[in-house]
Nucleic acid binder design. Structure first.
Lengths: 193, 193, 193, 193
DNA sequence: CATGAATGAGACTTCATTCAT
DNA sequence: CATGAATGAAGTCTCATTCAT
């Protein structure tokens, strides 16, 4: 049945997230994914054409969930500060709920496949464009000082991306809303007294 | 001769940087490194016990060069702003001069080996401790607002780490000194007008 | 119902002939046979124990049809020329009506199974014995020149077997009766003017 | 050294002929070829890209040896009878000296690969064209009765091809020269007294 | 009876490493 | 010291067969 089939596909994806995250693509054995999913090795191939495709669909599924959290239409009307806050908060929530996946999605650069590399590159550009728009909008509206927007983009994207490490590795546990508010405060006003 | 041997060792390391950087650890073939170094496949094993050891020594060499750039003793006396500026500038210079290597050293998380993973973790902690010290020193000295130091650390390390992408991938070319001055300005004073 | 079951068995055999003929034993997937037969994969196993058995029964069915065409009792009384003519004509008809199957039955030597190999060998010997009997009978009756009967057997069996290629592959279309008459004429009288 | 390398390539080809001949393409395991050649499994891949390529090169090598035996230039001047005699004799010699290979080269139709199938088809057409030329030449010169040349071609190619079976399987041992003389005698003059 | 999702044995192939030259 | 031919462990993937529904 469809319900059943969908269930098994998700079962595999979940096992894949677990193993790919902790071992990386190349150290992951299809058999281990199968074992963790509680199914036979061959069954994976009923749902995914190859190891690469399983990995890609895992990324795709993850990103779809991630982007579902942003309501882009509403955001256009907001001031820069608010938009940044939402980005930080949403990202922090996703990171908290998908600790391992976050690293693969927003940090990992393991070379797996040429096509995938380009996909990852496009992904990064896409995300950064969103940040750049916010910054340039705000500069145009005169909300910001006269600063290098590329540098601001690096600082913001770097901060967002760097969150996975303390959360995933060090078990840092901070309320996403608080984190977002404080982070945006620092970026907007600086750290100097 | 020792000189000769040293020469060949460096030849191999240079080839290793080239191939490991562009293909990642697992997609790199020992034969390709040998070809690029212009030597025989077996010769690599005269200088390195294994592929893993070659990779590790490549990392070690890279980090040694990196840290040689910091004069830690002098830095202790400086104000936070100056110390941050040096970190940004030094990092930007290293990134500009070792585009590919930077990504492997300061971003890559490809899982290669359990021991190496811990080494990388320790590396990260080490670097972050340095940042934390700066921040906590400054807070103690009353130079900074009352802010979450972990968050500041994330923002600074994230910004430093994120520099590789525009420089390596997008060909972004900015004077390290200028970059450092502007970045520290933003972090200290924020972006708000 | 028995009728129903028989109908499905034939359905499978027909699909098997189609796929085995064009792809060979090892390139044939049980699933493809099932698809062409319009049934489920598992259903084949209700009628045949295994892929090998299906193949064997397909061969058996084919040969039974083939040999039904020879009325061996009547043939014993006929002169050699007439008997050869019947062999050629019958074979040509079967080939025309079962293009692909003919190749598998009378030419193919794809090694599939030790038991099957011996079965095929016995099959060949059986057919050749028939030819040898005709030739030796005729020699005894003084109808033929003093020639090597083994050689004659090779020429006749070779000619019979070789017919599948132009008919199946090149689309050669010749009236079986005419073909048989002319072939026997050549064998009996040679090609020299 | 080149001599050494050539030696190993031939070693593998010889082992391949042995195993492919007796088991067929699909039942042949690369490991068995390696074992018979007395080398490691991986070594085969130093000389041949894949199982398919090994098979193809084995066929190519075999055919090259086969065709080296025909002196096509000289043959053009000879009468049909003589040319046929040479074909039979050369083929019989090759069959005697390369019992197993002959079946693969001139009889086997195991479906292995689409490209290979077309190659085999072209091969057959090429050989048959040679026979057709002889027949049509002779008809033009008025050496032959008014007979269907396609039928003659089938009889001759069939006879030639069918020789492998008694020689390889039944251990039939006949002097190639004698065989050729008698076979051509039968084809030219028929078997009737 | 019919089905097709699930299975796992087994095949090909790669590539780090060794070692005789 | 330097080499590269040889090796075999180990990984991905296929597909005949089973069995619960």
């Amino acid at each position: 049945m469809t319900v059943n089939k969908k269930g098994k596909r998700e079962l595999i994806i979940e096992a894949a997230v677990q193993v790919f995250s902790s071992k990386g693509y190349h150290n992951t054995r299809m058999e281990e994914i199968a074992n963790i999913a509680g199914i036979g090795k061959g069954t994976i191939y009923e749902y995914f054409k190859s190891k690469l495709q399983l990995f890609q669909e895992m990324l795709g599924d993850g990103l779809r969930v991630y982007f579902k959290n942003f309501d882009t239409d509403n955001m256009k009307q907001m001031p820069a500060e608010e938009r940044l806050r939402i980005i930080f908060e949403t990202h922090a929530k996703f990171c908290r709920d998908n600790k391992e996946l976050t690293r693969i999605l927003f940090w990992d650069t393991e070379v797996i496949d040429e096509e995938l590399r380009e996909w990852g590159y496009a992904q990064r550009i896409e995300k950064e464009k969103r940040i750049m728009t916010i910054i340039e909008d705000s500069i145009a509206r005169g909300e910001l000082r006269d600063i290098n927007p590329v540098l601001v983009k690096i600082i913001i994207t770097g901060a967002v991306a760097a969150m996975w490490a303390p959360i995933t590795l060090d078990g840092w546990d901070m309320e996403p809303e608080l984190l977002a508010r404080q982070a945006v405060d620092i970026i907007m006003n600086g750290i100097k007294k």
